[in-house]
Structure formats: C-alpha cells, structure tokens
Simulated assay, not measured.
Amino acid sequence: MPESRITARPTLAPDAGSAPTSPSGYPSSVPTGDDIPAILAWCVEVGRTAPRVGDGSIAAVWELLAGAAHRNVATARVLEPHLDALGILAQTGTDLNSERDPWALRSLGVDDRSSWGVFAAEGPGMRVEAREDASGWTLDGTKPWCSLAADVSHALVTAFVGDERRLFAVSLAAEGVSPHHGPWVARGLPGIVSAPVDFTRAAAVPVGDVGWYLRRPGFAWGGMSVAACWWGGAVGLRDALAEAAAAEHADQVAFVHLGRVDTALWAARAVLSEAADLVDRRADVDMRLLAERVRTITVDAATLTLAEADAALGPRPLVADEQYARRVADLHLYLRQHHGLRDAARLGRLVLESEDAQ
C-alpha cells in the first residue's frame, strides 16, 4: 500500500495525474487503524481549512473523502459527518473560524476545535421531542444510530416540533445527554459505535427553521458525499486486485476480475464527477433523484468490487493481511447505509415523479 497520504490516485477528475499529492491546506498523513481520538483530532484539523459542502467546492470535498477512504475507510467514516455538519452550519450563516454565530452555538461551548456528528435517523419506538420554555429549548427522547456519540463533542440532531422536524445543536457532554455504548459487536468499523442516545431535558440550540434541514438541497448532497467514501474505499480493493493480476503466476481469470472491477469503478467515478459538476453549477435538476442514482450506482460498483475481490483473492488476505481484512469488513458495513431494495423503490418512485427522469 502507498504511504499514508491523500493521493490523486483515487481521483474523481479524469484528467488528474497519478503522482502523490497533498491538497494545499490539508495535513497529508491520514490516520489508520482504530485510534478514534487520533482520527477525530485529524478530522477537526482538516475541517478548519476544508471547503464546505454548498460553497461551490463539492468536487474538492468528495476528492478529500475519497482519498481518505482509499487509505482508511474508518477515517472517511468519521470525516464525512464532521464535514457534513460544518457544511450545514455554513449554510445557516455560521462560520466557526469567525464571529459569525447567528444561532448562538457558542452558548453550547462550540468553537473551531469541536468535533461533530449528525444524528438524523428515526426508528420504531424512538422519537425525540423539542420544547421551548422561558429557559430555551430542550430535547427529550431517544435517538437511534448516533455514531460516535460518546466520542465527538457536539452533534446536530433532528427532533420533532409538533409534527415537523427541526435541526438542533447539542453538546454531548451536557447534562441530560446519555449515549448508549452498544450493542455494538460489529467486526467492521469496530471503533465507530453507532448506538442510541437518550435525551432528558437536554439543552439545545435550533439551527435553521422548522423543516429546513430536510427541505434544503444540501440534504441530497450529503448522501452523495457518503457515496464518495464508498468509492474511495472500493478503489483500495481494486489496488489489491491489480497487484494480484501483476504477479508472475497470474492467469487470465485474474485479469477478468480486475477488468470487471475497474470498469464498474470507472463508471461510478464518472457518475460522481458529473454529479459534482451539477451540484457546483447549481444546475436545475432534481437533486433527490440525482442523489439516489449516484448512491445506487456507487453501491452497486462497490458491492461488485467486494464480490470480485473475494472470488479473485480467496481467503488468504482475509486471514493473513490485517489491512485488507479490515478494509473488507469496514466497507461491507459502511455500504449498509444504503437500504437495498427500499432505496431502489424510492428511486423508482422519484423516476415517475420527477421531470428530470430522462
């Protein structure tokens, strides 16, 4: 594997060179392994200078995410929600590198050293309610699938205000915030615990108006940012297939596996690149449909890559190569953020409803 740095190798730009580069302003070394405090510290440092989702630089954001995933899937899994949160805050006029704080986030101890999660999942029997009184807003209830809630300092959390949802910022060290520590028996992404959080009159600050979080175009952009991570992680498996195909004893079948994977990942790269251009140009397209297409194409390419790597390389790297085995396990779990047939059904409905379906 190459040195621990973000490189131009897994690039979304078709005319980029192949020499290692370190994008200006970003630290070059990418944390590997499961040292979550070290990964979070790196993500915070990167976040200070990284472009924001929504400022016309989404191609650069996706390059950064794909490059991080190419080196370590777990690092990208932590970086993506941190950058997503910073982009969401920027879309509301907040800049943690300046004095722009229209939603009074600093009352929660927020600054440019904060690490962020985005907790927007819903689950059966779990609901978070937001209420306002003379002392301000508080949250009550349980939120499922809160990644790294015991590790990050702050989070953006969706909560119900009546029948609609609104986004709130919370300090995860505050009184009334109780992250669960499991169950989490995952073999992939073992250090990135995604468990419920209980809120009991926990102080919160609204971010954006009621319903804004789900209506904004950036909601779709964030879903595609995850796809950029999937793609970068899968490119790392293509590297292993290329190494095997280049071996002296390789046969035609090794070339078949590499060719199938290269084609699928090249197609996904082209889709991500076009989507980035559409987003950055603010093209008049249905962003929901675009996001579903991008995620479906990318998850299919990554899933095929996992299957071809299994068939081509057999069990040996899964039991004898720590880095390879970890990448396979991490990527397999990460891909479960795509909900298979349910997401395909949603895409089908959007195709019928959207004027951009052709």
Rank of each mutant, 00 (worst) to 15 (best):
A85D: 02
W231H: 08
L258E: 00
R327N: 06
D239I: 14
H82R: 12
T11G: 04
R201H: 15
V271F: 10
E164I: 09
L241M: 02
G54W: 06
E3V: 10
G93V: 03
V170S: 01
A50Y: 04
Q358S: 13
G93I: 05
H338T: 03
A270C: 12
P81M: 04
L352D: 07
T200E: 11
I39D: 00
G259N: 00
T200W: 14
E63S: 02
S194T: 11
A66D: 00
D300A: 11
S107G: 09
L333E: 01
P183M: 13
H332C: 04
V30F: 11
A325W: 09
E132T: 01
T138A: 03
V253M: 08
A344H: 12
T11D: 03
P37M: 09
G259F: 06
V197E: 05
D34K: 01
S153L: 07
W42L: 10
E292W: 15
W212N: 03
A345N: 13
V256R: 05
A173V: 01
S28P: 15
L278K: 01
A173S: 03
D300E: 12
L289Y: 01
R342N: 11
V205C: 03
A227I: 14
V256I: 11
L272W: 08
A267C: 03
Q91W: 14
A202R: 06
M1W: 14
Y26H: 13
L331V: 10
A90M: 00
